[in-house]
Amino acid sequence: MDPAGKQAVVTGGNSGLGQATVEALVAVGANVVSLDRSGTAPKGARHIVCDVTDESSVKAAVDQIEGGIHILVNSAGIGGMGPIASAEGPGDLAAFRQVIDVNLTGAVTVAAHVAHRMIGNAPSGEDEERGVIVNACSIASYEGQEGMSAYTASKAALAALTLVWARDLSRHGIRVMGVAPGFMTTPLVSGLPDDFVAELLKGAEFPKRAGRAREFADVVQFIVSTPLLNGEVIRLDAATRPPARTLWSAG
């Protein structure tokens, strides 16, 4: 699908991976709407305040978008660390539910409402596409580290849903893909100690550095413009395979 002139929705589009994706899509001529709880949309994009954990907020936001929606990038997300249980007691289940609500249920809710709108689009291009959905997964979808129960559960579920949604929506000419980044330089990890970051990057084969948000956006653009990509998750992690735990988590 050629994104020029198409309408795109990016959740969490005012910061991090979402912001870079909004900027990249605007640069190639897409009309972009950022769904975010706060902040300011990048230049050239429209911001609609939206809480992805609240279906009424999602429905109201999608209803404000006029015309067809052709591209959806689910990049809104939060982190979270904590064991499932310890000698002191059960893990923090309220914190677990919060991560699931944002990262998984939020993405499901937005996808449900936006995909419904996509089905009504006129077919586009020689393959008669109606839409493309891209989910921000994670290498934690595959190799979650100690203490990452909630985050891993949310991202593993998104990765698993990629093929299911592709099968649900293929009859309507809608593709679904995922991108699984490794450690990326974003506000989500901006407060981590330098020693911790260095330890995390030891597992990267090449290049041994944090990923850049624009690299995530570049992969999203490649997915959007390549019709044969469907039902799969692309790892973006410099061949990183995280260890079971780090010295920081063990301490």
Rank of each mutant, 00 (worst) to 15 (best):
L200H: 07
S249D: 06
M177E: 11
S141E: 13
E146A: 09
N14R: 11
R241T: 14
L163V: 09
G39T: 07
G144I: 05
L192V: 02
A45R: 15
R117G: 01
Q64V: 01
T246H: 08
D194P: 06
W165R: 14
R130V: 05
G191N: 08
A160Q: 15
N14E: 11
E23K: 12
A136F: 04
D237W: 15
G120K: 13
W165A: 13
G91T: 09
L163T: 05
V132A: 02
A111G: 04
V114P: 00
L25V: 05
I119D: 10
M81Y: 12
G191D: 08
R171M: 10
P123G: 09
S56Q: 15
V28E: 13
G82I: 03
F196Y: 14
D54A: 03
S190V: 08
A153Y: 06
F196W: 13
G211H: 11
P90V: 02
A217M: 00
K202F: 08
P227T: 14
A94M: 07
P123V: 05
R97C: 00
D51S: 03
R117Y: 03
G91F: 07
V32E: 06
A107P: 06
G131V: 06
I78S: 13
A156W: 01
P187V: 01
G80H: 03
T226Y: 10
H113Y: 01
T40S: 15
R37S: 11
G79Y: 08
V33M: 10
M184Y: 15
S15P: 00
R130W: 04
G5K: 08
A41H: 13
L163F: 03
G182K: 09
E88L: 13
N135K: 02
H116F: 02
S154H: 01
P83M: 11
R167Q: 15
A115T: 01
L161T: 07
R167T: 12
I78T: 14
S38Q: 07
N135P: 02
H113E: 05
G5S: 08
P207C: 04
D2G: 12
F206Y: 09
R167C: 13
R117D: 02
D51E: 05
D237H: 15
E232L: 11
A239N: 15
L188T: 00
G39D: 07
S86C: 06
I234K: 14
D218V: 09
A150V: 03
D2L: 10
